[in-house]
């Protein structure tokens, strides 16, 4: 555990909590892509199956349970409790274009051809692109609530911090996981355009809106 890994995990946790609180407090999931949230629930489910097979640490187990629990709670709020506020017309990204290629790739390129390992690989690849329905939705509506941009910033920051964590681990522990690193770079790059808008607009007190 190094400082980048810890702050990355906390940033990820902050993102998840911000989104849950935003929906809960405003009693609305307007502007949130339910499809992205279903993909994240799928990511955590397929990645954390090792909860049943190996124990790493109390921290590890607790965080996994919190992430999974929050992911399903978010999906429940969007598709059940506050379904009337869900903006399905703008959430029109075709997720099969992500899930099918990612599934194929995880079967082809993995560390070990075993069910659990393929599912872990699937989750890593899927996580890297799971935010696309949300970004697509924002590009379609041309704007995002400020609280939603804070969520996205924390979520993007988390993987960027993991990149530094992997550099740290490579130098000080000789550890590297090529699948996680390549997918992590892709994931971080997808946020770059958003990071730019966040810094130039939201941090200066303006609402995030895209030119028509």
């Amino acid at each position: 555990m190094n400082i980048f890994r810890l702050t990355g995990d906390l940033s990820h946790l902050a993102a998840i909590i911000i989104l849950l609180l935003k929906i809960w407090k405003s009693r609305s999931c307007a502007g949130i892509s339910g499809k992205s949230q279903i993909l994240f629930a799928l990511v955590f489910t397929t990645r954390y199956l090792d909860l049943f097979t190996s124990f790493i640490s109390l921290y590890n187990t607790c965080m996994k349970l919190i992430y999974i629990g929050c992911a399903y709670a978010t999906v429940y709020l969007i598709y059940a409790k506050f379904r009337a506020t869900y903006d399905g017309n703008h959430d029109s990204f075709r997720v099969e274009f992500l899930v099918v290629p990612v599934g194929g790739l995880s079967v082809l390129i993995n560390h070990d051809f075993s069910p659990l390992e393929i599912l872990w690989t699937f989750s890593i690849y899927l996580e890297s692109v799971a935010i696309l329905p949300q970004l697509f939705m924002i590009s379609k509506t041309g704007e995002a609530e400020t609280i939603t941009t804070h969520y996205l910033f924390c979520l993007g920051l988390y993987r960027a911090l993991y990149l530094f964590n992997w550099i740290w681990r490579f130098y000080f522990e000789g550890f590297f996981d090529m699948i996680a690193i390549v997918a992590g770079v892709v994931q971080t790059v997808l946020y770059c355009d958003f990071f730019y808008l966040y810094v130039t607009k939201v941090l200066k007190g303006k609402k995030l809106s895209l030119p028509a």
Partner: peptide, 10 residues
């Protein structure tokens, strides 16, 4: 030694 199959990250 690290076991690549034991994923200790989240």
């Amino acid at each position: 030694e690290y076991n690549i199959y034991q994923h200790d990250e989240l």
